[in-house]
């Protein structure tokens, strides 16, 4: 009898403990969802600012460009400014559309053999004005398996570009004036490792967990608001996962940080999963119908 009571008591104690653990988890989850909701509200006011600012510049400058009294040099300068602001707007909007696509589960992969170095150079080129405005130099280093080969890798070039553009944009944004951003890319067998190193103020251990959350921006060097909407890194991580890879950060506060992305070469499922008459026998062997 006593043994039975002791056993039941122990069982109840365990069940109570489990219940407490689950309750605590639920409370944490609730708190996180509350925070996410608050961040979403911030995002809406933030995004207004992000779209309004470049648009104001584009509208004002294009009006000036219409004036016939401008000399060629000033026109070129204004044209460059309009292009820069329009590029920034395009980049922000593409990110928002990408986030919407991922959240709707409609993000499809378009896999092809991609010239990685060419792709990186194109992205570096599109960010050269942003880098020049902060006097940041951007360099690239490619490690080839065979030096005579070009760096071709089977992946989704659009998603890879989006990953790099976000990392590079962040690296320039958070870099110190006249700093240096270094990109390295290395291919080993089936894996491609991309690193983006900046000389900014770095990311503390505590912040590393939250930077991948949507609508999150770090306050660095007393600067509360950086450009952007705080979606970049959450999109980056989601895309890296889509490309069958992972992303991690190495950083020492005050000494910049390095984002390391490693992705695996993908095969096109639509090509390998072809349900043609020839492959029917193999695919349907041992199938059950439900």
């Amino acid at each position: 009898m006593i043994q039975e009571i002791t056993r039941r008591f122990a069982e109840n104690k365990n069940a109570l403990h489990d219940l407490l653990v689950v309750t605590r988890k639920l409370e944490n989850m609730n708190e996180k969802l509350r925070q996410a909701e608050a961040l979403k509200s911030d995002f809406l006011s933030n995004i207004r600012h992000e779209i309004n600012n470049p648009l104001t510049v584009v509208l004002g400058m294009s009006r000036q460009l219409c004036s016939k009294t401008l000399d060629l040099q000033t026109s070129a300068m204004i044209g460059e400014m309009i292009h820069q602001e329009a590029f920034e707007l395009d980049f922000q909007l593409k990110n928002i559309f990408m986030a919407a696509e991922i959240e709707a589960g409609e993000c499809l992969l378009g896999i092809s053999s991609t010239d990685i170095k060419n792709l990186i150079c194109n992205i570096m080129d599109s960010f050269k004005n942003k880098a020049a405005a902060k006097k940041v130099t951007v360099t690239i280093e490619c490690a080839y398996e065979k030096p005579e080969e070009q760096l071709f890798f089977t992946t989704d070039p659009e998603k890879f570009s989006c990953i790099l553009a976000n990392l590079l944009s962040n690296a320039i944004e958070y870099s110190r004036e006249e700093g240096h951003v270094h990109i390295t890319v290395r291919k080993k067998n089936n894996e491609l490792v991309l690193t983006v190193r900046d000389e900014g103020s770095g990311i503390s251990e505590e912040d590393r967990n939250k930077i991948f959350d949507r609508f999150t921006q770090l306050e660095t060097g007393g600067k509360k608001h950086h450009k952007g909407h705080g979606l970049g890194l959450s999109i980056t991580r989601a895309l890296v996962e889509m490309l069958d890879g992972n992303i991690r950060i190495e950083s020492m506060p005050g000494h910049g940080c390095t984002f390391i992305v490693s992705i695996r070469a993908l095969s096109d499922p639509e090509m390998t999963e072809d349900i043609s008459e020839d492959s029917n026998e193999y695919i349907f062997k041992g199938t059950q119908q439900f």
Binding site: M29, K32, I102, E103, A104, G105, E241
Partner: peptide, 14 residues
């Protein structure tokens, strides 16, 4: 759990 994007990789969203 509120981390990252609210993507359909989570059942409660999908």
């Amino acid at each position: 759990n509120g981390e990252g994007l609210a993507s359909p990789k989570y059942g409660s969203i999908a």
